[in-house]
Amino acid sequence: MHATKEPAINKTNTGECLGLVEVTYPIAVKYCGHCSMPIEYCEFYSEYDKCKEWLAKNYPEDYEKLQLREAEDDAASSVDAEKKRQKRGGKGLLRIKKDNSDDDAPKRIRLSCTMRGKNKRVTIVAGLGAFKIDLRAAAKFFGNKFACGSSVTGDNEIVIQGDVKDELFKVIPDKWLEVPKEAIEDCGEGKRGQQN
């Protein structure tokens, strides 16, 4: 991009040495949908191919530019090997952490009822988080709907006061259309914390 030989000093810090042009703020940066970095950094991601796929699908223009640039780079590097540049050892590649949320695992919502005290019942809803439902909003909604107490009790778990299990079979798919009816499971008289 620029061809300085010795350490260049940028005196003004206006971004000149980076070739920036006048822009309005805030700048909208295009982020890759696969690796979440700005698309120019995708090539440093270990799953670059998937990034490319994503780019081709979402920003075909940028994808074309990228291919052009790659072709140029290939041509350039074969002509004069980068002798001046220092080499670095090590791998220095990003390792990808495995996502814990397996997309393949069947998403299920489990409903169960338990006794609290001697004569009070509570309903436990587990598994809403798998559908990317905001648990706090959901708890609030249940409270409103059934006129009762309702709270988030843990990761992926909501406790509703009162026995409302039967109603929930209808209410949940109505409220969140992405939840299929079959995904809701009746666990009967389950115990708390039995979610996984």
């Binding site: 810090n13 700048i27 950094y41 220092q86 080499k87 220095g92 590649l93 990003l94």
Partner: peptide, 22 residues
Amino acid sequence: HKFPYFVTMQQVDKGAIRFVLS
């Protein structure tokens, strides 16, 4: 990324990118 101008910039060479990214 939205307001890049307010912090002093230092530019590293290409070879360093992958290390910085890790």
